[in-house]
Amino acid sequence: MPLLDRNGAREDGWTRSEGAAVGNIPAVIVPWDSLADALAQQGDGRNIGVLIPNSLAISALAPFLPRLALVAIGFPAYSDGRGFSLARQLRRAGFAGELRASGPLIPDQFAYALACGFDTIELPQANAERQPLEQWLRARDSYSLTYQRGYGTPDRNILDRRRAARAAAAPGPR
């Protein structure tokens, strides 16, 4: 399935497994139900990732995080926004691997997904064909600045920019 990151289209180095079988595949994504089995047979130098449903509680996934190189959160529909909150909680829990949104998202959610901590978006083929890459990139850049602190870099945050302007205007120490 087509894959995007913040810079555009990207090759997918991961293979999907239907079950726990990981064999000699260097990087494999297994379903949540098979994660424990897959980790039990993990070979040296092999990366394991998991696809989780967006109804999963972060507390259930937390014990596995240190051994995971990728977490893909399923988006059953673009209108189901649970994945955005789950991504925030995963990042807060210290997960530093690849965070992937998997499902029929729309370009208007690209910037939101990146702000919530996702690295990549994995789209169904038909969606990617109907909504070409250039629409995603344009939607990504719809807003040059946003209001919410803690969702991305301070230089793109309005409150932080106002704070910086105040600091610059105030007489500083000599």
Partner: peptide, 13 residues
């Protein structure tokens, strides 16, 4: 008003 405008996490409640 400002905080809720275009909130990345809470726009698909």
């Amino acid at each position: 008003r400002q905080w809720s405008s275009g909130h990345p996490e809470f726009s698909y409640l």
